[in-house]
Write a protein that binds this DNA or RNA. Sequence first.
DNA 1: GACCAGGATTGCT
DNA 2: AGCAATCATGGT
Length: 280
Amino acid sequence: MIHQFELDFVYDFDKAISRLSRDPLIYIRPEEKLVKIPLENSVATLKSIGTFEQPAFELSGNLTEEDIARVKSIFHFDRSLDPIHAHFRNTNLAEVFDQHRGTPIVKEFSLYATLMKSIIHQQLNLAFAHTLTTRFVENYGTQKEGVWLYPTPERTAEIPVEELRALQFSQRKAEYVIDVSKAIASGTIELDTMEQLPDEEIVETLVKLRGIGPWTAGSFLLFGLGRPNLFPVADVGLQNALKKLWKLEQKPTAEEMQAHFPEWEPYLSYASLYLWRTIE
DNA sequence: GACCAGGATTGCT
DNA sequence: AGCAATCATGGT
């Protein structure tokens, strides 16, 4: 099955996949403008066949209507970026947005994977963080049509702490990953129903779990659910991006950053995303 | 060798 | 409530 479609707004596919291409677990061929996305019961292949001004795509695989909708949601094909750019045109981030015009929020492929990846990435440089997630997935995940899938929460829940320690997880991080997976596997936490809840309730629920703090909860909302109005002030990357942009001596405080929220809302997530791009 | 990484928790005051 | 120590390892 091949499904072709066009977008009626500017969309930069190269920029869209640039963050994905740094994750070794994602099947991506930038030179072919192609990505494979593992879904519920199949693997979708997405290929860009258009241009920056006239984006068009080809989606193939054994896909249901629901799968197609899911891919369109992941890649931001279902909502225009035009209002976002119009909004920031009159703000102090106008230049940044102009520079990275057409960059969408690309969601992670699974909510559970988002959580595991965020916990594993806490406090680590990206290189080592990717080493750890790769070891985790290659040891406990599965492979389908050449694409790696994170293990299920049930599988992770039964991993002994010592095994993750051997993969160079810290003692606490190993416990976080296993215990959070247990909470999901047992039904204490339902990720699938979170889509319907407001941001605050989701954060409230998630931070009760040991190992999930404000940064990880924010990351789940932004990259897992694609929520539009998140700005994780605790994120060092964002602090450094603003320090550079505003030519500050030191990293800005949370208050200094929050002072600009009225100007950037209700699209704080896009401000975050575009600022991260300035330091990549 | 110190210091910081796309942090969070624990234990102390 | 607020702060320091702790965690594992790689990059600078």
